[in-house]
């Protein structure tokens, strides 16, 4: 009988995905498409914030949305009805995140072909989506006031991969022990470059700042 043979691999499980993501980003650069990966916990107001943002930008640039969820198409339908822009639903088949290959499959959809900005609304979850590079140009996340200002400490990876942290539901600030300055400090600890933008998606307050930042990002991506 043969003995046991050991084959050394020494390879990160994420290596293939990281390679796919780099390839996708290079392709997006060539096509002049800006892909924003938007992440958050369930119920933080991703879809509402997105609708507000899209309505501020849709006359300036061509926008499309990919909604990723484990099941259902409620978000894709909601976006389409509220904004009139193309929106497709991706199902992750039970998985808690999207990877670069799933993102590419979504982007191959004809409805998204000529967009300047594609927003990927990732699965609501602060852990898993942070692990997988989707090929997006930029990662952003939404943290809502009721979740608490300590989340950057509890989910360090999510906050270190995001360049923008939108703080949503600012209208309920008086009812929660949420300290905005403390939150900024915690975010800075995870990623000194991260920009913090407080908004209230319900009233629209502050969303213009997020939209202006996004518009500038899209312009830079196309020109530089």
């Amino acid at each position: 009988m043969d003995g046991v043979r050991v084959i050394e691999i020494k390879k990160s499980v994420f290596a293939d995905n990281d390679r796919d993501a780099e390839a996708l980003r290079a392709e997006l650069k060539q096509r002049g498409v800006y892909l924003l990966n938007l992440m958050s916990s369930p119920g933080s107001g991703k879809t509402t914030t997105l609708i507000r943002t899209i309505n501020l930008l849709k006359d300036k640039i061509r926008i499309a949305v990919m909604e990723a969820d484990i099941d259902s198409d409620v978000d894709a339908v909601k976006i389409r009805e509220a904004t009139g822009i193309p929106s497709i639903q991706l199902h992750t088949g039970g998985m808690c995140h999207l990877d670069a290959e799933m993102t590419r499959q979504g982007l191959d959809n004809i409805a998204l072909a000529d967009a300047d900005l594609v927003v990927l609304e990732n699965v609501g979850n602060l852990v898993c989506p942070a692990e997988f590079d989707t090929g997006a140009v930029c990662n952003a996340m939404i943290l809502s006031v009721p979740e608490g200002d300590d989340k950057p400490l509890k989910y360090p990876l999510m906050f270190s991969v995001c360049d923008v942290v939108v703080i949503n539901k600012m209208d309920v600030l008086p009812y929660f022990d949420f300290d905005l300055e403390r939150c900024r400090e915690y975010v800075r600890l995870r990623n000194p470059k991260a920009r913090v933008i407080p908004v209230c998606a319900k009233t629209g307050e502050g969303v213009d700042a997020f939209a202006a930042w996004l518009l500038e990002e899209v312009r830079k991506w196309k020109e530089e």
Binding site: V6, I7, E8, I9, K10, V13, L189
Partner: peptide, 19 residues
């Protein structure tokens, strides 16, 4: 100091297989 970075501990690697 806050000027710190993770040296190791973030690995998710397949080291080897036995066949």
């Amino acid at each position: 100091s806050e000027n710190t970075w993770l040296l190791r501990g973030n690995e998710v690697e397949i080291k080897e297989i036995e066949v």
